[in-house]
């Protein structure tokens, strides 16, 4: 392995190969790029994959001020401690998953850098686990994005109860998803690799009556 850092009894390693080896997202086989160029260009629902992002699962103690301070310094964003909230800047998004768990996304190439920085600077008992291979991110937008989510998840997506930047982990069809609202008609879904094909079929089906546009 190119680089393994063992520090405080834990290891992190760069998991990405050199750039000449292309990564394959969980929806690689669906060839969304071809669908984007050859499929319909207008419709009520637009889906875009954000493949190969760096995803890091952070667990730490929000009552530990040193940790909270360190996270802010490391990410440039304060740890969102309110339930179901998220925070972001140009480089990263951090999503509340549970009282001691967050999901951080960064550019895929920057995951290891961030892991190494945590390893060097994060105090106390925490864990930061690279889960980039385990998920993919889909953005779903358009006039009927809300309807597709209503058909799929048992959550209230009305703006009054699901404002922008809110994050929920919930049931999605017969699988699950982490849903974040980016804008009124724009959502982010983070879905597990092994369920990605099922959910992609589901989303196409749920979008059919509104017209589905795939964007690259």
């Amino acid at each position: 392995m190119s680089e393994v850092i063992n520090h405080n009894g834990k290891i992190v390693a760069d998991q990405r190969p050199a750039d000449d080896i292309a990564g394959q997202s969980p929806l690689h086989h669906a060839d969304l790029n071809s669908l984007a160029s050859q499929g319909p260009q207008t419709g009520g629902v637009t889906i875009q994959e954000r493949p190969l992002q760096g995803l890091l699962n952070l667990r730490c103690n929000k009552a530990d001020k040193k940790q909270v301070t360190a996270v802010k310094k490391l990410l440039g964003v304060a740890l969102p401690c309110d339930p179901l909230s998220s925070a972001s800047n140009d480089d990263s998004v951090i999503r509340w998953l549970s009282p001691d768990e967050w999901l951080v996304s960064v550019d895929g190439a920057k995951a290891f850098e961030l892991e190494a920085a945590f390893q060097a600077n994060m105090p106390g008992h925490y864990s930061l686990v690279n889960v980039s291979g385990g998920y993919t991110i889909l953005e779903i937008s358009g006039d009927h994005a809300v309807d597709v989510i209503k058909k799929s998840a048992p959550i209230d997506v009305h703006q009054s109860s699901f404002p922008n930047d809110k994050v929920v982990s919930t049931v999605f069809a017969k699988s699950g998803a982490i849903i974040r609202r980016i804008a009124e008609d724009h959502f982010e879904l983070i879905i597990r690799r092994s369920f990605a094909d099922y959910l992609w079929i589901w989303l196409q089906d749920a979008s059919r009556e509104y017209g589905l546009v795939v964007k690259r």
């Binding site: 549970s98 048992p154 109860s161």
Partner: peptide, 12 residues
């Protein structure tokens, strides 16, 4: 009590 909102039974 952790998410501080009501959710549907199928999540539990």
């Amino acid at each position: 009590p952790h998410c501080a909102e009501y959710r549907e039974e199928e999540e539990f």
